[in-house]
C-alpha cells in the first residue's frame, strides 16, 4: 500500500491555499506525482481527493460519464417492451431490469461527480450530442426476443468488459462497478432465460429468437471497441490501471463464452468463422463491419436521433418539476434558518 499521508493536497477554499507560493506549488505537484506513480506501481487505488494527473482525471470523466450515458440511453430499447411483455412475470423482471439501469446511471454519474464534473453538465453534454454512449443502443429492439438477445449478448459483453473494471485504479469507479456487475449478471441470466424459453417454444418463437441473435451478434462484438491496432486510448488506460485487458482479448473471451452457451440455447451464432486457435489458445471470429460501427458512432445509426430526442424530451418535460423541488428546498431552508 502506498502511504496515505502524502495525499494532503488542500481542497479548494481551504485556508492557506492562496498563499502557496509557486515553489511550494511545484513541490506539491512533484509529491503528488510521486504518490500517484507509487499507487500505480503498487496497483493500489486513487481516491477523489488525491492528487492525480489532469489527463487521468479527464480520461476518467470521459469514460465514466460515457458509461453512465450508456446506461441511461440503454434503458430505452428495453423500456420499449415493458408495456407489451407477454407475461406478468416477464413484465416485472423487465421493469426491474430497466430500473436497475437507471440506478447504474446514478452510481456512475455520482462516481464522475467525485472528479469535479456536475451531473447537470454531463447530462447537457449528452443531449447536445457532445458526449458519446455505447453505439449498440442505437439499434432498434424490434421483437420480444430482442429482450433476450440484449440481456444475453449485450449485457454479457458489458459484463466481460466491466468485471475487470471492478479493479480500476480510481476507487469510486471500481466500487460502483462491483454493484453494477452483480446486477448485470442477473440481467444476463434473465436474457438467456428468455431466449431459452423461446428456443424451446413454438417454431415461430424459436425463429424469433434466432433472428434476434443474428441481429445483435455483430453489434455486441463491436461493443468491445475497435481492434487493438486501431484503439488509440487503450495503451494509456492500461498504464493507468483503468483498463486491464485489450479490446481484442476481451472480445475473444466473450466469443468463447457465447459459443458454449449458444449450444444450450440450441441456436446458432451468425458467424461461420468462429474457431478456437490451438496455437494462441484464443477464440477467433469472422470480420466485423467497422465502417458500420463508425457510421453509427458518428450519428448515422438506425435510432440515434430517436434516442437523443427521447432523452431531451424527458429532460425538458421534467424541468418544471426539478425547479419546483429546488424552490421548495430553498423555502424550507429559509424557514429553518428563521426558526
Amino acid at each position: 500500500m502506498a502511504s496515505q499521508t502524502l495525499q494532503s493536497v488542500p481542497a479548494e477554499g481551504t485556508p492557506g491555499r492562496q498563499e502557496i507560493s509557486a515553489a511550494e506549488a511545484a513541490r506539491h505537484e512533484a509529491e503528488g506525482q510521486a504518490y500517484f506513480d507509487r499507487v500505480m506501481a503498487e496497483d493500489s487505488r486513487i481516491e477523489p481527493r488525491d492528487w492525480m494527473p489532469a489527463a487521468y482525471r479527464k480520461t476518467l470523466i470521459r469514460q465514466i460519464s460515457q458509461h453512465a450515458h450508456s446506461e441511461i440511453i440503454g434503458m430505452q430499447p428495453e423500456a420499449n417492451w415493458i408495456s407489451r411483455a407477454p407475461s406478468l412475470k416477464r413484465k416485472a423482471i423487465l421493469m426491474a431490469k430497466v430500473q436497475d439501469e437507471a440506478g447504474h446511471g446514478l452510481y456512475l454519474y455520482s462516481a464522475a461527480e467525485t472528479l469535479g464534473q456536475p451531473r447537470d453538465q454531463m447530462m447537457q453534454d449528452l443531449m447536445d450530442g457532445k458526449a458519446k454512449y455505447s453505439s449498440i443502443f442505437n439499434y432498434p429492439a424490434r421483437t420480444w426476443a430482442d429482450m433476450g438477445a440484449i440481456g444475453w449478448m449485450v449485457d454479457g459483453a458489458a459484463i466481460a468488459n466491466q468485471v475487470p473494471l471492478c479493479r480500476a485504479s480510481f476507487g469510486p469507479y471500481g466500487r460502483a462497478m462491483v454493484r453494477v456487475c452483480k446486477e448485470e449478471s442477473f440481467h444476463q441470466r434473465q436474457g438467456f432465460e428468455i431466449l431459452l424459453e423461446l428456443s424451446h417454444g413454438t417454431p415461430e418463437q424459436k425463429q424469433m429468437a434466432q433472428e434476434a441473435v443474428n441481429r445483435w451478434y455483430a453489434p455486441a462484438l463491436m461493443m468491445f471497441g475497435p481492434p487493438d491496432d486501431d484503439s488509440p486510448n487503450s495503451k494509456q488506460s492500461m498504464a493507468w490501471n483503468i483498463k486491464r485487458f485489450s479490446n481484442d482479448e476481451l472480445r475473444s473471451r466473450f466469443v468463447g463464452m457465447m459459443m458454449e452457451q449458444v449450444k444450450v440455447l440450441e441456436l446458432t451464432l451468425p458467424d461461420k468463422d468462429i474457431r478456437f486457435n490451438e496455437e494462441t489458445k484464443k477464440w477467433e471470429h469472422g470480420p466485423l463491419d467497422w465502417d458500420e460501427f463508425h457510421e453509427v458512432l458518428k450519428g448515422r445509426g438506425p435510432c440515434n436521433a430517436q434516442r437523443l430526442e427521447r432523452r431531451r424530451e424527458a429532460h425538458e418535460n421534467g424541468t418544471w418539476v426539478r425547479e419546483a423541488a429546488a424552490a421548495y428546498a430553498r423555502k424550507q431552508a429559509k424557514k429553518e434558518f428563521a426558526a
Binding site: 441511461i72 434503458m75 430505452q76 423500456a79 415493458i82 408495456s83 413484465k91 416485472a92 421493469m95 426491474a96 430497466v98 430500473q99 437507471a102 440506478g103 446511471g105 446514478l106 454519474y109 427521447r310 424530451e313 424527458a314 418535460n317 421534467g318 424541468t319 418539476v321 426539478r322
Partner: peptide, 22 residues
C-alpha cells in the same frame, strides 16, 4: 406507471416510479 420508466423528470424518479409500478 411503467410508461414513466425512462421518461421521468429525473433519474431518481425513474427509479421511484419504477419501484411503485413493480
Amino acid at each position: 406507471l411503467g410508461h414513466w420508466i425512462s421518461r421521468a423528470p429525473e433519474l431518481e424518479e425513474d427509479v421511484a416510479l419504477g419501484n411503485i409500478a413493480l
